[in-house]
Nucleic acid binder design. Structure first.
Lengths: 240, 240
DNA sequence: ACGGGAACATGATTTATATCATGTTTTTGG
DNA sequence: CCAAAAACATGATATAAATCATGTTCCCGT
């Protein structure tokens, strides 16, 4: 945990960053990119390190260049709820900035991760001039809001078993498969999965074991392999 | 229900609309307002009438001028989840429009309601030119997204009793009290309250009866009067 | 390589909440 | 104004899921 606090060490120009093309910044003009580039700082985080903390004041945004990040909100009993899982091309920390609030969630690297921090001044300056970016952000927020509403409805109405199956499908959508075309390419603890589903850790463990017994999944190392997608979709009880 | 299908009948200029000052359109320029005004149409809805329907294609936005509206998303078993409650000054239907999706929820008047429909062309035209409006919308979406995240965490972690108490506090925040300073100024069925909390109707009925026995609330006609706010806050288990 | 802690697993038990059932009250439409 | 249908209420029961408890396995640091 106290291992490597070193956060610098990598460098990538915004103009040539591959992740940018997948992001809300894909349509920025060269001069806008240049502004980002000269004010940004690149940081590396080891698995388990905190990128930003709930309750803290946002000072800028984080562009994920490589790696994986979980973003979770803490309930008042201290139990976390995972509200977002990010990969390269995703931008983090913008919501708090845009609503002038403190961070409502904590971002933790769940894999060795490289991010670029863009200070809020540069971000807002570009936002002020680039109407295209505004629209891009609006679209992103509007889409996330719909997803959140769907999640709310699921939590209120669907049993844990279905939500757990759904969570696996979500992980597959987010991080994809490995080369074998079946193993979900992310490592999460059972507790993380429980916090994503919104259930007790033991329940998540039990349900995953059941899925294994039912030949829906297999455990491959710390990863989960989907061996019967049709059955998983059926278990999730969704119209896919 | 089939009573008065007549939806016209009222008229209010955007330029002089009092609700506008509470809305995302509070900073629009006169010429932008004029564009809204000449293309908008004013409609009245009786309690129970549908303003727009989940699955439908958005053709514009609805500005609530007077009345109350519930916005609910249907789970696949047909059970509704109330995701928003609107009053005058609130704008509805913009999320679907901004993310280029179909309506993800149905809006129903829960009181006699007056709304102004602004066609999407006029809306987007103003959005295109008014950077202030973009920022206003971004802020609104970002704030709603935080609220949604908080709701998700609550649903995942808090028991129904606490959430029910919280719902009453939310109703008070949204619609305020009557002149007596204690009766929440909105009429909702027990089923609506259940769909807001995310629980079974019987459970909501039971808990409200309990709150009544515990001298936390009283039922005044179809409305709920909070007679022990401190106890209600404590029951909700929130840091107020 | 080993000890210790975290993560995983699984059984037993409790509990919150949904569901089922039935009755009463209130509202609504003809 | 009356019949029928919602809405409300409450009890009994079932059940999903949390919690409690214990043991095993897997890592990780020294």
């Amino acid at each position: 945990m106290l291992a490597d606090k070193h956060k610098g060490g990598f460098s990538e120009a915004c103009e040539t960053c591959g992740s940018r093309h997948k992001s809300i910044f894909c349509h920025l003009a060269l001069e806008e990119l240049a502004l980002f580039n000269e004010s940004k700082s690149c940081m590396s985080f080891k698995k388990g390190q905190i990128i930003f903390k709930e309750g803290g004041h946002p000072l800028g945004i984080y562009c994920v260049n490589e790696g994986k990040v979980k973003v979770s909100h803490s309930g008042q009993d201290g139990k976390d709820q995972i509200i977002h899982l990010a990969k390269n091309g995703d931008v983090l920390g913008y919501r708090a900035l845009l609503s002038s609030e403190k961070y409502n969630a904590t971002a933790v690297a769940i894999d060795d991760t490289k991010v670029c921090f863009v200070p809020k001044d540069a971000f807002f300056q570009v936002l002020k001039t680039s109407h295209g970016l505004s629209l891009e952000i609006i679209k992103l927020l509007a889409t996330e809001l719909r997803r959140a509403v769907d999640t709310i409805t699921d939590l209120a109405q669907k049993p844990v078993r279905e939500r757990t199956a759904e969570a696996l499908l979500f992980l597959k959508e987010t991080y994809g498969f490995e080369e074998d075309g079946a193993t979900i390419d992310v490592v999460l603890s059972r507790e993380d999965i429980a916090n994503l589903v919104g259930t007790a850790t033991e329940t998540a463990i039990r349900l995953l074991s059941e899925f294994k017994n039912d030949k829906i999944v297999e455990f491959v190392g710390k990863k989960i392999k989907i061996i019967d997608m049709a059955k998983l979709v059926k278990t999730a009880n969704i119209l896919y």
